[in-house]
Design a protein around this nucleic acid. Sequence first.
DNA 1: AAGCAAAGGTCTTCCGCCATACCTTATGGC
DNA 2: GCCATAAGGTATGGCGGAAGACCTTTGCTT
Lengths: 244, 244
Amino acid sequence: MSRTDAHDAHDRLAQVLRPVRAGNGFEEALEQVLQVMRLGLVPTGGRLPAERDLAHRLGISRVTLREVLKVLQEQGLVEARRGRYGGTFVLPRAEAAGGDALRRRVADVDIEDLLRFREVLEVGAAELCAAHRLSGERAGRLREALARTHDAPLADYRRRDTLLHLTLAELSGSPTLTAQYAGARARVNDLLDCIPLLVRNLEHSQRQHTALVEAVLDGDAEAARAAMREHCAGTAALLRGFLA
Amino acid sequence: MSRTDAHDAHDRLAQVLRPVRAGNGFEEALEQVLQVMRLGLVPTGGRLPAERDLAHRLGISRVTLREVLKVLQEQGLVEARRGRYGGTFVLPRAEAAGGDALRRRVADVDIEDLLRFREVLEVGAAELCAAHRLSGERAGRLREALARTHDAPLADYRRRDTLLHLTLAELSGSPTLTAQYAGARARVNDLLDCIPLLVRNLEHSQRQHTALVEAVLDGDAEAARAAMREHCAGTAALLRGFLA
DNA sequence: AAGCAAAGGTCTTCCGCCATACCTTATGGC
DNA sequence: GCCATAAGGTATGGCGGAAGACCTTTGCTT
C-alpha cells in the first residue's frame, strides 16, 4: 500500500464511519417525530399515530416514546387527549414555541451540504419521474398535489409545497430516495422557517412548479431536470442570502 | 382535513417513520465495518483503526465493537495482532468466506430502489463537480484516482473503481452525499460480487470513466451528467440481467 | 538489555431502554 | 344508561451496552 493510498483511506474512513446512533434513541425519535410535523405530514390539529403504534414504527419502547411526547407537550407543540378517540394532537404553532430549539438546530446545519444534497435528490427524482412516464393514477396524484398548492391559503403553502415535492420523490420509485428527501426537506423547512415568506417568491415558485409538473407528465426528462434545478437554485439563493 | 389528505398522510407516515435503529447497535456497527471493507477503504492486508479509535468513531463502546470484531475473526475476514504496531488486519478473502452472509444480504435488497438511488447520487455528484470547476489540487486527485484504475491488476479493479467514484462524490462538496453514496456503493458492490467480472465490460467502463473525468475537468456539466448516466445504466443493465 | 508506548484482552459498575402488565379516562353503540 | 373499546397514564423487572480502569503482549528506541 502506497503512502498516498494510506492517506486517502484514512481521510475517507472519517467520512464513512459515522456514529451508528446519532445521540441516544430518545433524541433520534424526537427528531423523527419533529420531522413528521415539520414536513406537515400531520397538519395542525391532526393526530399523531397512537403511542403504541408510533413506538412500534420507530422501533422504540413506549416508555421512551412517551419521554419524547412529554418534551413536545412541554414545548407546547402537541397536546394529549385521553379516552377513546383521544390521542396526541398537533397544536397551532405558538410563534415563539420551539424557537430556541429551532435556532439551535439551524445553527449547526451545514447549509451548503444540505442545499447541494437536496438539489441532487430533487433533480434526480424529477428526471426519474419524467423518464418513467407516469401512469394514469400516478400522474393524477402529481396533478392533485400541484393543484393543492394553487388554492393554498398562505399559512398552509409551505406544507402543500412540501407535499408536492414529497409526492414527486415517491413517484421516483425509490423508497430510499423518498426517505432521504424527507429528511433533507425537513431540515430545509427549518431553514425556511427562519426567513420571511415573500409573496413574490411564492408566485415565482408556483410558475416553476407548473412547468416542472408539465415536463414530468410530458416525459421530457431534460426539461424536468432543468425546471427543478432552477427551482432549487431559487430557494438556495434565498436561503444563502438570508442566512449566509 | 379532507379524506384524501388523511389517506396521503397515513401512507407517508409509513415511509418517513422508520425504525430509529435498524437492529441493535451491534448489527449496525457490523454493517459499517463490513462497509469499510467492501468499499476497499482498507485493502487486503491493511489495518483497521485501533479498537478504541474505531469504537469512538462509531459511537459505540469498545466492548460492543469487540463483539463485532470477534464475529469478523470467526468468519475469517480479519485477524487481530497484539503488541505495539498490532491491530486488526483485513485478510485476503477466502472465497467461500462470508458467502452465506453475502447471499443473505443480497437477498433482501430492493435492487431497483438501490440502482435508482445510486444513479441519482452519482449523476448529481458528477454534475456538481463539473459545475464547480475543480481547482488544481482537487482536479489532481480526480486524475490520480482515474489513473489508478487504469493500471489496476484485475483483482484490485473493483476497489479502485469504487475509490474513483468515491472521490467524485467527495469532490461534490456535500458530505451527506458522500456518506450516502458510500452506503449505496457498498450495497452495489455486494451485488457485483455475485456476478462475473467481464473484461469486455471492464474496458467499456474504462472508456466511460475517461470521458466522465474529462467532462468534469472541462466543467461541462451536460456531458458529465450524460457520461455518468450512461455508465450507471451499463452497470444497472448488467445487474438486472444477472439477478432479475 | 531495559523500558516505554501502543496495541489487543479482560473485568466491573452503572444507566438506559425494553417488555409487560395494569390503571384511568372518554366515547359511541346497544 | 351500561359497557366495550381505544386511547393515554403508571409501575416493575430484566438486560444490553457504555464507561473506565486495568492487564498482557510486542516491537522499537535508547
